[in-house]
Simulated scan of single mutants.
Amino acid sequence: MTSSQGYFNDRREAGRKLADALAVLALADPIILALPRGGVPVGYEVAKQLKAPLDILMVRKIGAPGHEEYGIGALVDGASPQVVIDEATARLVGATPEYIQGEVKRQLAEIERRRAAFGSGLAIPYAGRTVVVVDDGIATGGTVKAALKALRKSGAGRIVLAVPVAPRSALIDLEPWCDRIICLSSPEPFYAVGAHYADFGQTSDTEVVDLLAKAQESSEAGAK
C-alpha cells in the first residue's frame, strides 16, 4: 500500500499523479478498468501514460426484496459478468434463488443499456492479465470490494487497486482482495472524497463517452 497526503485540482490531475505512481511498478501489459462515471477521467490519464487499454467496470447493486437500497450483493460486468452475493444476508431478508436470478437479469440489462450509452459495447477480456482498477476515490469501499471479488472470480492474473484518495480503514479492508494498492492520500480523519478536490463536479455521460473514444483511438493507433 502506498499513501501520502495530497490535494488535487480535478480528476484529470489526480489521474496524472496516479499514473506517475503506477509507472514505477513497470506493470506488464496492464488493462485499466475505471468505475464510471467519476473514475473515467482518472483512468483515462492512467491509461494514456501507461499506454494501456481503458474500459469501464460497472457494478450494480442487488437489493433486498422490497428494499432495493439494502444491498445483498452485486453484479459486476466484464467479458464474463460475475455475481457476488452475501449468502447470510440474502437468507436473512428472504431473497430466494429465483429472486436473485431475476435481479441479476434485470441488472445485466441495465449494464448493457449503460454500456451502449457510453459507447463501450465490448468488455475487454482480462483473464490472466494485470488489471488496474481505478476510481476517483473511496469512501466506504463497498462498491470497490464487489468489483475486486468479481475480478478474482473471473481469473484476472494480478489485481492492482489505484485511487487518489481513501480512508486507511477502507484500504485495510480491501487489501485481501487485490495484490497491490496505490493510494496517493489517506487523510485522517477522513470526511469525503470530494473534500480533497478543488473541482469535484459531476462527470457527465458526454465526458465519459468522449474519453472512452479517445482512449480507444489511442490504443488502436499504438497497436498499428
Rank of each mutant, 00 (worst) to 15 (best):
A47D: 08
G102T: 06
A90V: 02
A64D: 00
Y99T: 00
L54P: 10
G78P: 10
G71N: 14
P65C: 03
A117Q: 12
T96L: 06
P65F: 02
A90N: 00
I32C: 01
L33P: 07
L33A: 12
Q49R: 08
V59R: 01
E103W: 06
V131A: 03
A34N: 06
R114G: 06
L50A: 00
K105S: 12
Q49G: 04
P81E: 00
L108W: 04
A34C: 12
I124Q: 03
R115K: 12
Y70L: 15
Q82M: 09
R115G: 09
I111V: 13
I111E: 02
L33R: 13
Y44F: 15
R60F: 04
E103S: 11
V134Q: 07
A47Q: 04
I100H: 01
R37S: 08
E69Q: 10
G71D: 08
I124D: 05
A74E: 07
I100D: 03
Y70G: 06
A123K: 01
P125V: 00
I124W: 09
G71F: 13
E45R: 08
Q101H: 12
P97C: 03
K61N: 01
L50V: 06
G39P: 09
D29W: 05
P97R: 10
L75E: 11
E112Q: 15
G39H: 02
Y44D: 07
T89Q: 13
R37Y: 14
P97Y: 03
V76G: 14
Q101M: 10
P53Q: 09
T130W: 02
D86V: 00
G128Y: 03
R106E: 05
R60L: 00
V40M: 08
L108M: 14
G39Q: 10
A116R: 13
A90T: 01
P30R: 11
G94C: 08
D77Y: 07
R129W: 02
P97G: 05
I62S: 05
V133N: 03
E45L: 04
A79H: 04
K51W: 03
T96H: 04
E98V: 06
A123S: 14
V132G: 04
S80L: 11
A116W: 04
E68C: 01
P125L: 00
R129I: 01
D55Y: 05
Q107E: 14
A34W: 09
V104D: 12
D29E: 15
R106A: 14
L75C: 09
A127D: 06
E112K: 14
L27F: 11
P41Q: 02
F118M: 11
G43Q: 05
V76E: 13
K105F: 08
H67R: 15
A127T: 13
P97L: 10
